[in-house]
Structures are given as C-alpha cells and as structure tokens.
C-alpha cells in the first residue's frame, strides 16, 4: 500500500514537471508546483544545540559532488497541496489561441514582443503582433490573455522582475488603446527567471527580452 502510493506520487510528480514546462492551463496550479520535505527535527534538545538537530535524514539530500539533488528520503512522502492557497484569483478560462501553438510549450513568434536592452519601449515592428492579438481579444470578450514579461540575465534579479513588468504593462497599454477590455488582460513578470534562449550571447539576450502573449 505504502509502495503503491509512493509510485503514484512519483508518477504524479513526473507528470507535473512535464505539465509545468508548458504554458498550458492548470486548474489548481499552486498546489502542484511545490514539494517540500517533512522536517520534524527541533533544535536545542541537546546540551549542545545545533540548528538541524538530531535528524538530518529527514531532509532531502543534495549531492554536492555530483550536483544532483537526491530524491525524497525513504519513509516520507512528498507533500503536495500544503502550500497556502491561492484559490482565489484564478487565471480565468483560457480560450483557444488565435494561432496554432503546435501543441508544444513554445509560444509562437506571432505572440512575442521583443525589446531593446534596458528598455520597455514598444518597437514599431511589434505593432502588428499586438494588433492581431488585440483584434482577437476584442472579438472574443470571454478570452483572457496573460502578458508575461521577461528580461535577459544581466542585472539584479528583483530589478529585472520590475523591468519585465514594465514591458508587459507597455503591451497592455497598447492593447487597451486598441479597445481590449482591461478585464481580459493579466500581467505577470518572470524577470530573468525563464529565459527563452540559454547562453550569454547578445543573440540569446535579444531573444530573452520579451513579452509573451499567452492564452
């Protein structure tokens, strides 16, 4: 019984990892994204107290030599769904996209707006992309889009979160000016955390400074 639960949980976590790599919909995403190990050890029980106390085995192990993180320690289960909420404020119903996604996790080129270094100015060549998506949203008032702001890897991570939001807001403003209802647009910034292209070349940086229009 214990074993079958464990296998189920392992399968679930693999499925979750796969699903989270895509930009698709999750019904209760927060509960599925996170796992943490059970930590029951308390400090200070010995005359000589040490933070992690008496039961280091209760934590996941991280192999510094190989760089690989260990799996859950035997005897304890990964826990899903104990992260606090956020049940409210669901992203709404995601509709069918104006262009094909190809079933993959990549956002197609006609839904990406690129930016110059350290800039949130909309380039003239992005107007067409924003306009076609704005037209789609105007014609489908029940569809909600998420504008995801991104930056390249240079600079402070938290400042880049702010810069990514500034870019997403710039796209939102253009869409609003084109008549899209504010209720159809949500904004989230991932800063430099989710690059589209890896590597530290100017070419990668240019691909990573972007807003993805996600349905």
């Amino acid at each position: 019984m214990q074993n079958s639960i464990r296998i189920l949980m392992a399968a679930a976590s693999i499925a979750l990892l796969a699903s989270c790599a895509s930009t698709g919909e999750n019904t209760d995403p927060a509960a599925q994204d996170v796992t943490q190990s059970e930590a029951t050890a308390q400090p200070g029980q010995e005359a000589y107290s040490y933070p992690y106390g008496q039961a280091p085995g209760n934590y996941d192990s991280y192999d510094t030599a190989s760089g690989a993180y260990g799996s859950y320690p035997s005897g304890s289960q990964p826990e899903y769904g104990q992260s606090g909420q956020p049940g409210s404020g669901q992203p709404g119903q995601y509709g069918q996209a104006p262009a094909s996604l190809g079933g993959g996790s990549m956002v197609s080129a006609d839904r990406i707006v690129y930016f110059d270094f350290d800039s949130a100015d909309i380039q003239p060549e992005s107007q067409t992309i924003i306009e076609s998506n704005a037209n789609y949203l105007r014609g489908n008032p029940r569809i909600i889009t998420q504008l995801e702001g991104h930056t390249d890897e240079r600079g402070s991570r938290e400042y880049n979160i702010a810069l990514g939001e500034r870019r997403a807001n710039a796209v939102r403003q253009v869409m609003s000016a084109m008549g899209v209802s504010p209720r159809q647009i949500r904004v989230v910034s991932y800063g430099e955390e989710r690059p589209a292209a890896s590597g530290s070349s100017e070419q990668s940086y240019a691909l990573n400074r972007r807003v993805e229009i996600v349905y």
Partner: peptide, 13 residues
Amino acid sequence: NPQVILRSSQPIM
C-alpha cells in the same frame, strides 16, 4: 550538509 527546504517547478527567488 545541504538541505532542500523547497523544491518547485516554478521560480523561487
């Protein structure tokens, strides 16, 4: 003595 406090499929910062 590394301890994984949280593991997530979404960014942690």
